[in-house]
Amino acid sequence: MHTVLIIDDSDINLTLIKALVLKLGECNPVLFDNPLKALDWCREHVPDLVIVDYMMPDMDGLKFIAAFRGLHGRDEVPILMVTANDQKDVRYDALLGGANDFLTKPIDRVEFGARARNMLSLRSGQKFLADRAQHLAALVDERTSEIREREKELIFRISRAAEFRDPETGAHIQRMAYYSLAIAKGLGLDEAARRLILEAAPMHDVGKIGIPDYILLKPGKLTPEEFEVMKGHSRIGYELLKESRSEILKAGAQIAISHHEKYDGSGYPRGLKGNDIPLFGRIVAVADVFDALTSERPYKKAWPLEEARHFLEEGRGKHFDPLCVEALLAEWEDVLDIRQRFADEEMPLL
């Protein structure tokens, strides 16, 4: 059913055009004798065809067309301007001003039928294309979402593969990712950045996959030489991920190489200082250390929360970016909730 908007200050013309529109079939005429009221209606409704008279009180047809075209989403709706035979200049102005065609007064049914049908056919074509475009966009969204979900799962499983060779647990990956998210939220990062860090943070230690077992799984303290090898996991993780076209993997590469940097420049592998350390690296540094401190390991007990909090506060401006520490502390309720949701025995997907 097509909605046909008819605007004419003459009742007889409104009635005539309405009757002719009904004769077209599959049409629902909507009548206005006042262009301003018609314009108000158009703010809430999108007609399939507009038939508008030229000479009307309050607002002439040309001004109506300009105002109508100015409304969002009304730029393609076909418009027929009704003019008298002697108004050639008005017709030109109407066509230039956004009318698609015109009708001559007195209205002739054959001419009216042909022009109105052409316009409605144009409208049907527009709607078909718009529906198709919408359908395709929905399909692309669906497929993109599937690919993204697969990507997330692969990232999680790759990260788990690395963590399996490590005394740390799958729940550690989850907690530190959500702590990173809490910090991003506290820093006021936008939604896209928050989602990116949540998805990329689990890859922070993926480079451990390249560290020999005798070092990675050594129960005792590492020698300085062994520690140097261990530090290599930052670069290995970066090398693994850096050339990916995926935004998540690229962010993962950045996190891998920068999450052991320290704010005062004493970290590794590049000894970057302050804001030269990528933001995601500064965030993950806080999240990773906080979770490591507050988690139990075969070689240590979990620190009480207050002590871990104190450690972070003490490390502000030295080990950690002060703003990232403040952000985590500002989201303390979230921190407690994350600890509860991702206890060590649980390993749900992100």
């Binding site: 007889i12 005539l16 009757a19 049914r109």
Partner: peptide, 20 residues
């Protein structure tokens, strides 16, 4: 002829003209 031979529309228009 202009109304495509439609007597119904013609009558309606005459009625409206006289009414207005």
């Amino acid at each position: 002829d202009r109304l495509g031979g439609d007597e119904e529309i013609y009558t309606m228009m005459v009625d409206m003209y006289l009414q207005d």
